[in-house]
């Protein structure tokens, strides 16, 4: 089994916490893992991505070849479209619908969402609202991860275990609210895929 994921967002939106959770979950399953990140200048409000590769066999390249990603997981709608050339035929686009507008020529959000809907395999959700509903606005990233979990060859329990380890130092309450966020994301996908 092999899952290649492009994580997308804007610098400062915290896609690395998603990456860390997936990484923990993969390690929990004794899988091979490579995860390339963006640090430095581009982090300051620019478009950022992380290439995450998980496999039961050793992995060669740190970068995912174009046309081979199984999942694009984006915490920002316009950013989800930037990496379409990487998505393989039949791959899934999973994206948050809340825009992060820090440029003055950001397109109309309706047009962005319409472009996303053109993708045959897409899941788009308002992760910020879902996170607010469960009382933890900061967990919208984990809602997004939850929404992508059905497309991994990793059990949902492993993701829950990943959350427990990543948030271990922050206490039981934070762990629970994030597991709740993870489940809310998964439930959305199960109902809407």
């Amino acid at each position: 089994m092999k899952t290649d994921i492009i994580l997308a967002g804007v610098g400062g939106q915290g896609i690395l916490s998603i990456a860390a959770t997936i990484g923990m979950s993969a390690l929990h399953n004794n899988l091979h893992l490579k995860q390339a990140e963006v640090h430095g200048m581009s982090q300051r409000g620019g478009a950022v991505q992380s290439n995450m590769r998980i496999s039961d066999k050793p992995i060669s390249s740190d970068l995912i070849p174009m046309g081979e990603a199984d999942i694009i997981l984006s915490v920002e709608p316009m950013e989800s479209l930037r990496y379409l050339p990487y998505l393989k035929k039949g791959g899934w686009l999973v994206t948050n619908t809340t825009p992060f507008i820090n440029i003055n020529n950001y397109p109309e959000i309706e047009e962005v969402l319409a472009e996303i809907k053109k993708q045959k395999n897409h899941i788009s959700l308002d992760a910020d609202s879902i996170a607010a509903e469960i009382g933890s606005k900061r967990s919208s990233n984990i809602v997004m991860l939850g929404a992508a979990t059905p497309f991994f060859d990793i059990s949902f329990e492993s993701f829950e275990e990943g959350i427990r380890q990543i948030f271990a130092r922050k206490g039981e309450d934070i762990i629970n609210v994030n597991i709740q966020a993870l489940r809310a994301g998964r439930d959305f996908t199960e109902k809407n895929r």
Partner: peptide, 20 residues
């Protein structure tokens, strides 16, 4: 040969880094 399925839609704008 690399066969690509998707292209970047035209409406996607550059998002250069900026001061916080």
């Amino acid at each position: 040969e690399t066969v690509l399925d998707g292209t970047i839609p035209e409406l996607v704008k550059n998002r250069p880094p900026s001061m916080c």
